[in-house]
Each structure stands twice: as C-alpha cells, then as structure tokens.
Design a protein around this nucleic acid. Structure first.
Lengths: 231, 231
DNA sequence: CGTCTAATACTCGATTTCGAGTATTAGAGA
DNA sequence: TCTCTAATACTCGAAATCGAGTATTAGACG
C-alpha cells in the first residue's frame, strides 16, 4: 500500500478546502480555481470525484447532506472528520518538511542530449527559454497586481516559489545554450564529430560505439568509462 | 488517447538505450543505473516490463532473439525500429524545447501554509533546508569527482540542472523561514492571531471565517477578497 | 419568445502505474 | 564444501489516473 491511503495531491487540496467549511465536490473545484490553487495542485475532474470517494471510504470526510435544486443533479455536501483534519495536518507537515525525489522532464531530456545534433539542441533550448521567460513575466505581473491590491503575500508564497524555480531554469538553460553554441561545453567536440560522421558518412552512432578508437582516436579515453557494459 | 502512445518517461529511456545497441530489459535497467540516468528518470521494474511490451506493440521496438543461459529465465533481446528512432528524436525534441506544467509537492504545501502554526512551519522549512543542503553537497561532490576523472560535462548536464533547481529551492526556503520567524511576511499577523485564537480559546478556523470582522476587525479588509464564495 | 452559449455537475472505463513478491544463481566467506 | 547474501530477472494484480463525454440549465441576446 502507498504510504497514504489516498495519495493524489488533489486529495490534500480537498481536505484543505473542507477544513474551512463543508462543500460539495464541484464547489471545491471552483474554489480552488478562484484562489488559483489549481496552479499548484493539478485539478482534474476525473480525479476529483474518485478522490472524494476514496477519502470518504477511509473516513477522512463524510457526507453531510444531499440536496437537489430544481432539476440539477444531486449534490452531496461533504464535511471533514477529525481523522481527516489530522491527516491534513500530517500531510502538510510532510509536504513542507520532507523533500521528495522529483523527476523534471527537462532532466530526462538533458540526460540524452547527444541524441540530437548540438545546434538543434541549442535552438530548442532557446525556444524553451522564450517560453519560460514569458511565463516569468506573466507571474511577475500577477504578483504586482496582488501586491497592489494589498493581498497578503502569505497567500501566494507558492507562486513565489514557482517563480524562483522558473528563474533558476531560465538562467541555467540560457547558459547551457550559450556553452553549446560556443563549444565551451566539455564533450561537445565528440558530440559534433559523432553527428558529422552520421550526417556526412552515414555511420550510425551505434556503429561508432563499436569501434570508438577508429572514429575518435585516443583523445576520448573517457569513452572506456562509458562501458558498452559487456553482458 | 494520450499524446504519446507510450507516455511513461521510462519508455523514453528505453528508446534511448536501445538506440545505442540491442539489449534485454534487465540490461537496460542496469545500464541506466550504472550511468546514473535513474537519477533523472524514474526506474521501476514494474513499469519497465510493461513499457517494453507497450513499445513493442506500437512498433517502436522489436524482439530480436530470445536466449537462455543455463537455468536462468529467458531473456528477450530487443532492438529499436526506424519508427522507434523517430519517436525517440521527436520525444527528445519535445522534452527539451517545450516546457510542461510541473506540480512541485512543496508548492502544494506552500499553498496551504496557514494550516499549521507559523513557528511550526518555520521549523519544518528549516528541517527541509538541512536535507536540501545535504543533497546539494552530495551532488557537488559527485560533480567534482566526475570532473577530476575528466568525464565530460556533456554527460552530466542533467545533474547540473538538478543542482541549479535545488540551489534555488534552498535559497527560497531559507528566506521564507527567516521572514516567518521575523514576521516580515505580509499576512503573518493574521496567521499568528488565527492560531492564537484557536489554541488559546478553542475557536476553530472555520468559526473564525464565519465572522471575520469580529475576530480580526477591519484591518483585514482583503479577507472580503478571499470569498467564502456564497453558493 | 426562441435560440445559443457558457457554466454546472458530474460519469465512465480504458490505460497506466507501481510496489511487493518470487525464483534462481554466482560468488564470498567460514 | 556449505551457507548466505547480493544480484539477476522478472510477474502480478490492485489501485490510481485521466481525458473525453454527457446532460442539464440559467441567462444573454436578438
């Protein structure tokens, strides 16, 4: 079993919302939207209802009443239980106090950089940079507006944090793209050569790896250290 | 259907590995480990085999031979197909060039900060800070070692990127913890007061929200802006 | 007064995901 | 030579996930 009975982060948001007052699921979703919490916690309707059901099954929340207005579908109003309150506090404690291993998709991409030619990668990084910087602009503008409305920072620290991460990403990929363009990245000589061999002579990377000394000489001693791991 | 036929990032790593040479699944997993790629892409055995099957079903890879050594279980060696090669390049292009909305668990936590008392939160942030800084140390040491072995940076940019993000996280939570401790965070007066009311007089946050003016006066005009969203 | 759109309020089930378990064997050490 | 551990090489099914679809209705607009 997973560490938590209900592990979807949306369940955390549901508990957080219900600890304020009883609500029906759809109301939770609109509340999250209106407060922008859907920027920090992924809101998906499919998940919302299954998560609510799971929370109820585990005794963290309970149905309070089912009402029907006109011909609208029934709405079940839920309220949080004491164990639910406890679970929320415990979960929050963990989220803040304990880092977890995250896997950023860009990390996955960077791990396979040589899979595309250097200049193509630089181009893609610059493309990403534009998008990231645009997002930074947007968030900054939103912050300015919230500040001008005297809406306390306490309620948007999560967005500040996101901004800090985006800025770090921007800075890093900016540098990296430049280093690739200028060949300042250690290993790029090999990278360029491998792609040249492939594009001009049709020798595939797989073939190159079969006889590295032939294609790259002994300048690339470290290649012995990336072992084609004899099976 | 999801944008990709096989969307698990591990599938990307499988394609990347097989574009080097044919392998059997378990060999892929050991290769990923020995190169530290499992730090950038989540490796789970359960996922590995289902992902390989899915890749085969979609024509991205194909079984090349099935061998048996001694009494060991059979091992099926897979190789990448041309469409697989194409899919890999396309996926890599997307991973690098296009940012995706990520949901960092700490963001979720920060979005509900008032759910714990201010000093407790500061304490938790400091606890997290320690762990994050320890990780930064570890990664830095690993980088030093790779550099001293003259192992080209090209092959560990993903780890550099991760380090950049961790440093940004460290800086941010360091500041935030301090701002909470010193009450420099706008909104912390309200935060403290709410918890005091609860801890000393037993008035729950839910009750406080029912009559904000009574408990917080008109200093907190912005509270009208966090609407208990009349249903 | 009729039509259209946007918002309301969900449901469904096909995929995906994953952790925990299993069985075997090579080699280290006693 | 025996035992024990670590590594090898997977399997399985319970649970989670999610996007796309559906049905209703209030109110805008002509």
């Amino acid at each position: 079993m997973a560490r938590r009975k209900v592990s979807n982060p949306l369940a955390f948001a549901v508990l957080g919302s219900l600890s304020e007052r009883p609500m029906h699921p759809y109301e939770i979703s609109t509340l999250l939207r209106s407060r922008g919490k859907d920027q920090s916690i992924k809101l998906n309707y499919g998940s919302l209802y299954s998560v609510v059901t799971a929370l109820e099954k585990n005794g963290f929340i309970e149905a309070r009443e089912t009402i029907r207005e006109g011909n609208r579908p029934e709405r079940t109003i839920y309220q949080i239980t004491d164990t639910g309150q406890q679970e929320f506090a415990d979960w929050l404690t963990e989220l803040i106090g304990t880092p977890t291993r995250e896997f950023h998709p860009l990390e996955a991409g960077l791990a396979y950089l040589p899979g595309l030619p250097p200049d193509r990668v630089a181009e893609l990084l610059e493309q990403r940079l534009k998008a990231v910087d645009a997002e930074i602009e947007e968030i900054t503008a939103a912050h300015d507006q919230m500040a001008s409305m005297e809406f306390p920072r306490l309620f948007w620290v999560e967005s500040e944090f996101r901004l800090a991460l985006l800025k770090a990403e921007s800075t890093y990929i900016h540098h990296l793209a430049e280093e690739i363009r200028t060949d300042a990245l250690d290993g790029s000589a090999f990278w360029r050569k491998a792609w040249k061999l492939y594009e001009e002579e049709g020798i595939t990377p797989a073939d190159q790896l079969k006889d590295p000394v032939k294609y790259f000489g002994t300048d690339f001693a470290w290649m012995q250290a990336i072992p084609p791991e004899a099976t």
